[in-house]
Design a binder for these strands. Structure first.
Lengths: 128, 128
DNA sequence: TTATTATTGCGAATATGTTGCAATAATATG
DNA sequence: CATATTATTGCAACATATTCGCAATAATAA
């Protein structure tokens, strides 16, 4: 199943690149100027995840967030990194901090989903 | 708002104690012999969380899971510990492993939600 | 025993995410 | 350039998780 280039895919990637953070489907939809169907956005996001272009984070709000893989911006992130979700501005960012864990014997690891939440520096300074 | 003792609350706690793992609303409902309304179970669980009796984990499936706080069983867990979700048996257990993280300056931490997923030892050995 | 009010059940509402299907459009081929 | 192939889209419907309003019930206090 060969992939095709579509305005939708470009628009979605664009938003994620310029924002530089992890975004949910509705946030992405809000940011895109052209009108794109909800289901289509999900399908595009899922395909990007399959292709290793995006990674998916599930936050404590139970929602899925999507972010560019590894080299979101200048500083490369370790494979399994922490994420920070700001409860004020509702954005999620990848932290350049690796998740260190060890599993008891006979456990097989498949995925890591670590989200810290609180108030990000921008919002905490606004509060002053 | 003073809390009252009800059969529902007892039943829910009972299941969580005997299972010793984190369970979702539907898993709890399945395990309880008496009939309890879905909404009621959620309310009971939420109240227990408010009261610090249970803690809430959100897994990659976007669902909420609830587990006894800290001293789920004999071995006490650190405040912020990892959780392991088995994709075979669909259970979540608290790992006695503390989450070590550090935040950039001016970030305020509020909550930590770390879930590793894969195959637990019981299920990985079944596969052999 | 009675009054107060926390708790429950029920139904409906909300939100997130997925899916089937027909229509559209990106790419490859002649 | 014209056409065939099929990936992608839009739409509506669906599935599931969780919450909420409201009236009825029941736990506790008096």
């Amino acid at each position: 199943m060969k992939r095709r280039n579509t305005p939708t895919k470009e628009a979605v990637l664009d938003v994620l690149i310029t924002t530089g953070k992890a975004m949910s489907q509705d946030a992405i939809e809000r940011e895109i100027d052209i009108n794109i169907n909800r289901a289509t956005i999900y399908r595009v996001l899922n395909r990007f995840c399959e292709d290793g272009i995006l990674h998916r984070i599930v936050a404590e709000d139970g929602k899925q967030y999507f972010a560019m893989c590894i080299n979101c911006d200048e500083n490369p992130k370790p494979l399994y990194h922490f994420h920070f979700r700001c409860i004020k501005c509702e954005t999620i960012e990848c932290l350049p901090k690796e998740v260190n864990f060890s599993l008891p014997k006979d456990y097989l690891i498949e995925n890591v989903n670590c989200v810290l939440s609180g108030v990000c520096k921008d919002c905490s300074q606004l509060a002053i």
